[in-house]
């Protein structure tokens, strides 16, 4: 798990659930440069626990990888959307290339956007910015 200090407590908090360390570092680095605070979890279960923790600050957005250990991205998406407190959080799904079914499943499950892997951190940052500006 990775958490960045947030002294000003004003930066939007983003929950990142991604088991691939390299992908996660690319995303964390780019989003932190854009001014976000990124909370990284390596599996779906710990991401859900972090989101549901009663004493944690609310997340502004969640980025979920589809394939993860313990709990995959779809299940995590479902669990977030069935929790009234977490359901409004915009969700971006990270799915593998050539898996249109995953995209359909993600969008119909309540995801707000999706990014295909391999991906562009620049594009991801722009999509995050757009979703948070809504």
């Amino acid at each position: 798990m990775h958490s960045e200090a947030n002294p000003a407590n004003q930066r939007p908090r983003i929950l990142l659930a991604e088991d691939d360390a390299l992908t996660a570092r690319l995303i964390v680095h780019r989003l932190e440069r854009e001014g976000y605070e990124v909370f990284h979890c390596q599996d779906g279960q710990s991401a859900l626990e972090s989101a549901q923790a009663p004493d944690s600050e609310p997340f502004s957005l969640a980025i979920l990888d589809v394939k993860m250990p313990r709990m995959d991205g779809f299940e995590l998406l479902g669990r977030l959307k069935e929790d009234p407190r977490l359901a409004p959080i915009p969700v971006v799904m990270l799915t593998g290339m050539g898996t249109e079914q995953d995209v359909v499943r993600a969008l119909s499950g309540g995801a707000d956007d999706y990014i295909l892997k391999p991906f562009s951190p620049t594009e991801l940052a722009l999509r995050v910015q757009r979703l948070l500006a809504r």
């Binding site: 390299l22 892997k117 391999p118 991906f119 562009s120 951190p121 620049t122």
Partner: peptide, 12 residues
């Protein structure tokens, strides 16, 4: 190579 496989577009 590990990064190139993960990235597309200008990042690649």
């Amino acid at each position: 190579v590990r990064y190139a496989r993960l990235l597309v577009g200008n990042d690649n």
